[in-house]
Design a binder for these strands. Structure first.
Length: 262
DNA sequence: AAGTCAGACAACCGCGGTGTC
DNA sequence: TGACACCGCGGTTGTCTGACT
């Protein structure tokens, strides 16, 4: 005897999410936290597969997501990490706070790939294109750094100087302005989040999860444990700006005492 | 103004690893 | 211990949107 199926596939809705569905999902997650995704659709009143809910949350609705195109630094980091890790998008995404594997994958396929080809670099091997025609061996470290040097030359001076191959905790400069990456206002997100905040200022992100699921939120363990991103009013304001919380600005940020909730 | 096309990105599919019964 | 479901990941497809004719 295995488990129950995650959802009744016959009664599952597919396709783009509506604002109403988003609102329900956000409300549910903020109220109950991320528990087992299987039960989320049922409890949240959604006719979606749990898998679909998880994807929607992690790729689009998560409050810590940056929106807009990757900036130069992030792009460089992706290129470097890709050279080392290959198509391990989730691993790459782990080094870019606020970015999802899906987002990075899409950006790679639509922007970076072409950029590299244009520069004569094989996006798969990260070697010069003419060379990869004759050799399909994995790039060695020297070649890799030579190619990165070429990339740096293509960058504006300040970016090139700033760039260096990532270390364990490189690049995760949370203070890097998200506005510079061109966060666009999304009216539907604006509505969903503002309503959610107004409806439930006691959003219980820590929720009932006993399995430490919040790693998916993309914070370091120390950040997760303290949820400093929420407790820090400045961060709240930043988040609210990033997500276009128009109505939220009407609320006195300092009055949001959520300390007990975490 | 309408039609077509290409680019961008959201969402789905299928697989592998892991956990549960 | 085997069967099956869950979860996460990477690849692929579908849909939307803006540019162009």
């Amino acid at each position: 005897m295995g488990r129950q199926p995650c959802c009744d596939k016959l009664d599952v809705k597919k396709g783009p999410w509506t604002a109403d569905e988003d609102r329900k999902l956000v409300n549910f997650i903020l109220t109950h936290g991320q528990c087992c995704w299987r039960s989320v659709p049922k409890l949240a009143g959604l006719r979606r597969c749990g898998k679909s809910c998880r994807l929607r949350w992690t790729n689009y609705l998560r409050p810590d997501l940056k929106r807009g195109l990757l900036n130069e630094d992030e792009e460089q980091l992706v290129i470097d990490l890709h050279a080392r890790l290959g198509n391990r998008w989730s691993k790459i995404a782990a080094s870019l706070p606020g970015r999802t594997d899906n987002e990075i994958k899409n950006h790679w396929n639509t922007h970076i790939k072409k950029k590299l080809v244009k520069m004569g670099i094989d996006p798969v091997t990260h070697e010069p294109l003419h060379k990869s025609d004759t050799s399909h061996e994995a790039p060695n470290e020297d070649d890799h750094h030579r190619n990165l040097d070429v990339l740096r030359l293509e960058l504006p001076k300040d970016c090139a100087a700033e760039f260096s191959p990532p270390t364990e905790n490189s690049s995760t400069d949370e203070s890097r302005s998200t506005s510079e990456s061109g966060n666009e206002e999304d009216p539907s997100m604006n509505l969903i989040w503002s309503e959610t905040f107004l409806n439930d200022l006691s959003w219980n992100i820590s929720g009932p999860d006993s399995r430490g699921e919040y790693g998916e939120l993309g914070f370091s363990s120390s950040e997760e444990s303290s949820f400093s991103w929420l407790l820090d009013n400045r961060n709240i304001v930043d988040n609210h700006r990033n997500f276009g919380f128009g109505e939220f600005s009407e609320i006195d940020i300092n009055s949001l005492d959520m300390g007990d909730k975490f």
